[in-house]
């Protein structure tokens, strides 16, 4: 069943986030990069503020019991929130989840910084007319289809 509220909420949240991200030049890997290279903490404030904003809303929602499994680790211990390959199954060994998180995280961080920004920042720069970022988005969307069709079945097979 199509949930209209989900379509409107994601479109609306995207519009607002895209707008503020462009105005503030927000980037979630730029902060770590700048701190490492020149000890500049400006962009690093974004992920910290994001964490505070999200925890505040989840905390309030928990008080009104609309976020029943928050905080996740209190009831699910070391089971990850589903999303990564195999992470949805409780029978997946812990080391598999940790391995995929480390492999995915290091690759994501490495290639994001070489590309010049996190996926959010690349969407924003593409919207500013940057053809490098527009090419990036081409690879990004092709990558999603190739991953799901080819790499995901392979990972599930091997692990």
């Amino acid at each position: 069943m199509v949930q209209i509220e989900v379509l409107l909420a994601t479109l609306g949240a995207g519009l607002i986030i895209g707008y503020v991200a462009q105005r503030a030049r927000m980037c979630f890997v730029g902060g770590i990069r700048d701190y490492f290279l020149v000890k500049d903490t400006h962009l690093l404030k974004a992920p910290v503020a994001f964490l505070i904003g999200a925890v505040a809303i989840f905390g309030v929602a928990y008080l009104f019991s609309s976020a029943p499994v928050w905080p996740w680790a209190a009831t699910k211990a070391l089971l990850p929130i589903p999303g990564a390959p195999l992470s949805g199954a409780a029978s997946t060994p812990l080391w598999t989840n940790v391995f995929l998180a480390v492999l995915g995280g290091v690759g994501l961080g490495l290639f994001s910084v070489l590309a010049g920004g996190c996926p959010l920042r690349q969407h924003v720069m593409a919207s500013e007319g940057d053809k490098s970022s527009i090419s990036y988005l081409g690879g990004f969307y092709v990558g999603a289809v190739v991953f799901t069709a080819v790499i995901l079945p392979f990972i599930i097979d091997v692990l």
Partner: peptide
């Protein structure tokens, strides 16, 4: 872009 998407989906 391709590589970032692949590794992001491995991390989930």
């Amino acid at each position: 872009g391709f590589l970032v998407m692949v590794f992001a989906l491995i991390l989930g």
